[in-house]
């Protein structure tokens, strides 16, 4: 990857991260918000791997693996919450969840 360099990879990562932030802020379907969070986690992973390749150490890749494990845990608990929510309120729209008047 010497032909590409570090910056283009980090730019791709930044664009993906911003896309994920946009999804979290604009969508109201809880599932799509979750998927946007996954997109942001993947953008960060790409940065980790790019820096790892740049520095020649595998530590960044180890961190990427940790991020994946935490993402798996987050997805399991989050989707359980969504199922519980749907069972109680018959909706997954975040706009309808105003019980706490937030």
């Amino acid at each position: 990857m010497e032909s590409v360099g570090l910056f283009p990879v980090l730019a791709v990562s930044a664009v993906l991260f911003a896309t994920g932030v946009g999804g979290v802020l604009t969508r109201k379907n809880a599932l799509i918000v979750f998927m946007s969070v996954e997109l942001m986690l993947n953008a960060v992973n790409l940065s980790f791997v790019a820096f790892s390749r740049h520095s020649g150490l595998v530590d960044g890749q180890v961190f990427a693996l940790f991020v994946m494990a935490v993402a798996a845990a987050e997805a399991a608990v989050g989707l359980a919450l969504v199922i519980l929510l749907f069972r109680n309120r018959v909706t997954v729209s975040l706009d309808d969840l105003d019980l706490m008047k937030g």
Binding site: L10, A18, V21, L25
Partner: peptide
């Protein structure tokens, strides 16, 4: 608002990088 925040964040990140 969401698109504006995402756009500012993206351009800011790329400028910083």
């Amino acid at each position: 608002v969401g698109m504006a925040v995402a756009g500012v964040l993206g351009t800011g990140l790329i400028a910083a990088l």
